Computed example of a mutant assay.
Amino acid sequence: MSIGNSPEDDRPSIGRALQQARIAAGLTVEEVSSSTRVRIPIVHAIEEDDFSRCGGDVYARGHIRNIARAVGIDPEPLVERYDGDHGGRPAPTPAAPLFEAERIRSEPRRPNWTAAMVAAIVAVIGFVGFTLFNGGDDKPSNTAQVAEGSKPGKTAAKPSTTKPAAPPVPSESAIAAAPRDKVTVKLGANQGKSWISVKDHNGRLLFDGLLLEGESKTFQDKERIDLVLGNAGAIELFVNGKKLQDRFEPGQVERLSYTKGDPEAG
């Protein structure tokens, strides 16, 4: 160590520290890539302290953590050093937006279905009452036919024994009948884990972290949702109640934006 320098000046760089730990653990770059799902060119670039291929600070931090764990060292000092070199971490996510996002997931807007059922029942009762009032001496069988949409006739028909169809049960893929006046986005990691970043139309950060395989999160905003997907090929995506067809490859970084109505990738 040279005179006048602090001990921190002689520490290896982030990339050098990861490379030394990998070699000490007897691992190849290919083995680290396979265990972390970080592509081989990106692992090489990180070991050379080139983070430009990571797709942003969020993914650079995630790659540093994953590689550090794979080679058996503590990732937090390296992440702190990265934050110090790149302007620090973003402001922590406010508690209210996170709580609201989780509440959307656990309570899929069932009051909308209740309101729709009540409105339908009121409409049917009103229509039947109007028909009975104007039908005079018509038989009940004719009244039932008018209520179902057929024209009233003089010939009496047999009363229908078919029970009314039960109201439809909302499926999870419909994201609980997403309201038309908002944009609703659901992300599910069904092909592995992926780092995701989610912002609302004001640029406020709703989520920044790792979505593990089998987990899902739902987000909602009145105008727009902006996404950054790390391992985009692992993500199953629903927008405004519509499942989007898989079109991303594993390890692909995607930046997307969605608004109300029929989803279109930004």
Rank of each mutant, 00 (worst) to 15 (best):
K193M: 08
Q252I: 00
D200L: 01
Y59E: 00
T28G: 08
C54R: 01
G251N: 06
I125W: 00
G261C: 01
K243S: 03
R81N: 09
A166E: 13
L187C: 02
E76L: 02
S34F: 12
D10Q: 14
G15K: 07
T93Y: 14
R224C: 01
T93K: 02
I64V: 09
F207N: 05
E213K: 15
S150T: 05
S52Y: 02
P170W: 04
A157E: 10
V185E: 03
P90L: 08
S171I: 02
G55W: 07
A177D: 12
A123S: 11
L256Y: 12
A24Q: 11
R103A: 05
T36G: 05
A232P: 07
T28S: 11
L210I: 11
D49Q: 06
A123L: 09
V146D: 06
T36F: 06
D200V: 00
K182W: 07
G266I: 03
C54I: 05
R65A: 09
A17S: 09
R247Y: 13
I121Q: 14
L132R: 11
P250H: 04
P111G: 07
R16M: 14
V183S: 00
D221M: 00
G126A: 08
R110W: 14
A144S: 12
E254A: 14
Y82Q: 03
G233L: 01
L205H: 03
P41D: 08
E48I: 10
V79K: 05
S171K: 15
V58W: 14
G251R: 00
R255L: 06
I104L: 13
L132M: 12
W113D: 02
K193N: 10
P41I: 01
S6A: 10
K243Q: 09
P167C: 07
D83V: 06
F99Q: 13
D85T: 02
L27A: 08
R204G: 03
L18G: 08
D85A: 14
P41E: 09
R109Y: 11
R247G: 14
E30F: 01
F219Y: 10
D85Y: 04
V185I: 10
R105K: 06
A166G: 12
D221F: 00
P90F: 00
V183E: 00
D181W: 00
R11L: 14
L211G: 08
F207E: 03
N142L: 08
P179L: 04
K139I: 08
S160C: 07
E223G: 06
E213S: 14
N5G: 07
S13P: 09
A95P: 13
A91T: 15
R110E: 06
S33G: 10
V228K: 05
E223V: 02
A165T: 09
A156Q: 13
E48W: 02
V58E: 12
A147P: 04
E148G: 06
K193V: 06
Q20T: 04
A116E: 04
P140D: 09
